[in-house]
């Protein structure tokens, strides 16, 4: 088993499969995360959002299990991304004078390591804001309002989410290809669905800091 795993994760296809599976599971997490966040918009002064946060908190030890699982997904995804990116840089040490472009590369596909890194940095700021701040337990909605009312914080969220959106427009279709899903009828559809899901997630998450800037901005 250990030998098998070692062989598998060292192979190029195995590494990418690990990255694809962890990435798709993280997309699943984002869908749930966005659904929860959108309760912020209910016109009840944050009662629904506070109740949602409280329900998660009430899970007790189960919440920690979920958090450890989530952390593991991030660690696997980032570790394999770093591993393959370093390998890819080593595979071409001599640079072309004219950078090759055959028309299939996209801004999203070419910037995956950079957008991934921006999302990681954003994630650290995000965790400091809302996971490690003890005020979150007393009043989640108040802390969200207090934090995002600051234009710099809102801007950090906008940049973080834009990087995530660009990352996802390539990521979802790419992960499916890596896991062997490709069919002349379904793949164009799936690829577009992947971009669509990325845009829905992006617009959904963007709506929060933008709303914060407009509705709460300048209040403190």
């Amino acid at each position: 088993m250990v030998t098998w795993l070692q062989t598998f994760v060292r192979s190029s296809v195995g590494k990418k499969a690990c990255m694809a599976i962890s990435g798709l599971l993280l997309v699943g997490f984002l869908v749930a995360h966005l659904a929860g966040n959108l309760t912020l918009f209910l016109p009840d002064d944050g009662a629904a959002f506070d109740a949602y946060a409280q329900k998660l908190h009430d899970l007790g030890p189960l919440l920690y299990v979920a958090e450890v699982g989530l952390l593991a997904l991030f660690v696997v995804h980032i570790a394999f991304a770093a591993w393959t990116t370093i390998g890819n840089r080593k595979a071409r040490t001599s640079r072309y004078a004219v950078q090759p472009d055959h028309g299939e590369r996209t801004v999203a596909s070419s910037t995956m390591p950079i957008t991934g890194l921006i999302v990681l940095l954003f994630l650290i700021v995000h965790l400091i804001h809302f996971r490690l701040d003890e005020r979150f337990e007393q009043g989640p909605f108040d802390l969200v309002e207090g934090t995002l009312a600051g234009p710099i914080a809102a801007l950090i969220y906008i940049v973080g989410v834009l990087a995530l959106t660009l990352h996802l427009t390539h990521a979802i279709g790419s992960a499916l290809q890596t896991l062997g899903v490709n069919h002349p009828r379904w793949s164009p559809l799936l690829r577009r669905a992947g971009v669509g899901l990325a845009l829905i997630l992006g617009l959904g998450f963007l709506s929060i800091p933008i709303y914060a800037l407009i509705a709460w901005g300048g209040s403190n």
Binding site: S109, S110, Q177
Partner: peptide, 28 residues
């Protein structure tokens, strides 16, 4: 010492025989 595929699909566009990336999914 070749790199890892990140699904840019530049390969297929450059291929003089138009080999499809469907083959890469099959390999995966």
């Amino acid at each position: 010492g070749f790199g890892n595929c990140t699904n840019h699909y530049e390969c297929s566009a450059a291929c003089p025989k138009g080999i499809s990336v469907e083959n890469i999914a099959l390999l995966n």
